[in-house]
Structure formats: structure tokens, C-alpha cells
């Protein structure tokens, strides 16, 4: 591995930037994501920063089932992220559609639209679970580099 690639990988592992996207959630999981970011759980101390634009983000944290209205827009946002990109599905709805599965306005879980790296079940998912998923994602990334 070249030195340049090593530096890029190091920065990617030490400071993954995330973007939060709501594809039609009830806001329960969104509150837990904010909870994980703010001082009580404080995942920012690991170098994880919430960004406002998909063009700067490495990891997309998605909450909620994909509605038919949102599917096209969601795909477009995902396509704007630079490679390599990862997607975390937060909450039961994002994993499988949850209680909204089978509704005429809902497509299902987010894996019907984009590939998913990690699923975090729970209604809503606890901040500890979100942190656990982030840590697992980073360790897998580290392993794959070796």
C-alpha cells in the first residue's frame, strides 16, 4: 500500500464523517441519533462529525422505511456520496419496513434501494446500539485494510 493510501485510510478510520437522512421515519430514531451525537453519549469524541452535505460524508445514517415518494430522492443523495461509502440502517423500519411494511405508500426497508453495511434494529434503536454499529463498521474497515 502506498503512503498516500495509508494516510487516506487512517483519516477515514479515525474520523468518519456522517450524514443523517430520514426516508420517512416517525422521528423516534432521529432523536436517538441526535442523542448519540450530543454530550451524553458524545460519539463526536471519536472524531465522528455530522455533516450537512452528502459530498463530504463517508457514512450515511438512515432512519425510517423508504416511502415511494422518497425513494428516488434517497437514491440520488446516495449517488452523490464519494466512494467508498457506507450505509447504516437505524431502527426496525429502516431494516425491514417495520410496522409500515405493506402500506401503499411504503416501499419497504432501505436495502430495497441502496446496499446496506450494517443493520441496527430497535424501535427506536438505542444510542448504545448506534455506537456499537459504528465501532463494528470501523473495525471491519480496519481488518479489510490489513
Amino acid at each position: 500500500m502506498k503512503l498516500k493510501d495509508k494516510i487516506i485510510l487512517w483519516s477515514r478510520i479515525k474520523s468518519p464523517w456522517i450524514i443523517h437522512f430520514n426516508t420517512g421515519a416517525c422521528n423516534g430514531c432521529d432523536i436517538e441519533i441526535v442523542d448519540a451525537l450530543t454530550p451524553k453519549y458524545d460519539i463526536e469524541r471519536f472524531g465522528i462529525v455530522l455533516k450537512g452535505t452528502p459530498r463530504h460524508a463517508d457514512v450515511m445514517i438512515v432512519s425510517g422505511p423508504v416511502t415511494r415518494q422518497q425513494a428516488k430522492r434517497f437514491k440520488r443523495i446516495y449517488d452523490q456520496m464519494p466512494n467508498p461509502k457506507f450505509v447504516l440502517a437505524v431502527g426496525t423500519c429502516a431494516c425491514s419496513g417495520g410496522v409500515f411494511d405493506g402500506c401503499y405508500s411504503v416501499l419497504g426497508g432501505i436495502d430495497k434501494v441502496v446496499p446496506v453495511s450494517a443493520y441496527i434494529p430497535g424501535c427506536p434503536a438505542r444510542p448504545e446500539a448506534i455506537i456499537d454499529a459504528v465501532v463494528k463498521l470501523i473495525t471491519e474497515l480496519e481488518k479489510s485494510a490489513k
Binding site: T67, Y104, S105
Partner: peptide
């Protein structure tokens, strides 16, 4: 309803069958 939703289908009417619509 999303754009491109089939015309003439109104999901909250009682005679709409959810399975067929899906």
C-alpha cells in the same frame, strides 16, 4: 401521493384492495 401514482386510484376509499394496489 408520489408523482406518477396511477390515475383513478384513491387509496383511502373502502373498495380499494391493498394487495392488488401494492
Amino acid at each position: 401521493l408520489p408523482e406518477g401514482f396511477p390515475k383513478g386510484v384513491h387509496p383511502l376509499r373502502k373498495d380499494v384492495k391493498l394487495e392488488e394496489l401494492n
